[in-house]
């Protein structure tokens, strides 16, 4: 156990990079004239794969605290920043893949889409909100902001996760199971926090109750 610890971060780093490496490999196959796992419409498949990866990593980021609570293994929180930054990274590649391969880098087309298509508006909002979180994910920034303000800013992750799931809802046609599944996971992760927060608050109000009566 003791000597796996220094390996943990590099291992997780490689694991998080694997989906992108796989995607590059598939494009390599396509370049050599072979149809790979991306199928008949590789651009669509890539955009979706990247969006799925970004959302899954976003939820994984939110999963770290419950996992810590359940396993009582505090060291795992040291992975949270990396997972969160990978979520941002995949969202960025998702955006670039859409902007580049679908819109062929046309800024007017992107602006038109953001204004016109609800799911793009939602996705873009989620992405823009992720930027300040990514920028402040350094030790220096935490020191500069102070842990309290920093933690407050990073509560944005909940709104971002909701926007991302909403983006998924609005993107799919019909009433598909995928968005519901991700919403379910998000609600459980939020519920975990509320369940932790509620008893703590009740204890607090019991403490202050009598004082306020005076």
């Amino acid at each position: 156990m003791a000597n796996i610890k220094p390996l943990l971060k590099p291992l997780v780093f490689i694991a998080m990079l694997t989906p992108l490496l796989w995607l590059f490999w598939q494009w390599g196959l396509l370049f050599m004239g072979k149809t790979g796992a991306l199928g008949a419409n590789p651009i669509e498949a890539s955009n979706r794969f990247l969006g799925d990866s970004a959302l899954k990593l976003l939820l994984l980021t939110l999963m770290i605290t419950p996992i810590r609570d359940i396993t009582r293994w505090p060291a795992i929180t040291r992975l949270r920043r990396m997972v969160g930054l990978f979520a941002f990274f995949y969202a960025s590649v998702h955006l670039v893949s859409y902007f580049g391969m679908d819109l062929l880098f046309s800024i007017p087309a992107l602006l038109k889409d953001i204004a016109k298509r609800t799911y793009i508006t939602l996705g873009m909002t989620a992405f823009l909100l992720l930027i300040p979180l990514a920028l402040t994910s350094t030790n220096a920034m935490i020191r500069r902001m102070g842990p309290k303000k920093w933690a407050q800013l990073h509560k944005l992750i909940y709104a971002i996760a909701f926007l991302a799931v909403l983006h998924y809802f609005f993107m799919t046609r019909g009433n598909q199971p995928g968005p519901w599944l991700h919403l379910g996971v998000l609600l459980i992760l939020l519920g975990w926090r509320i369940a932790k927060w509620l008893p703590a608050r009740r204890l607090l109000s019991m403490d202050t109750g009598p004082k306020m009566g005076k």
């Binding site: 149809t35 008949a40 019909g174 995928g178």
Partner: peptide, 17 residues
């Protein structure tokens, strides 16, 4: 091969494959 592997037929699932 593409016309028979990339289909919208939601009665069998929402993924094209």
């Amino acid at each position: 091969k593409l016309a028979t592997s990339y289909n919208n037929f939601y009665e069998f699932g929402t993924d094209k494959s």
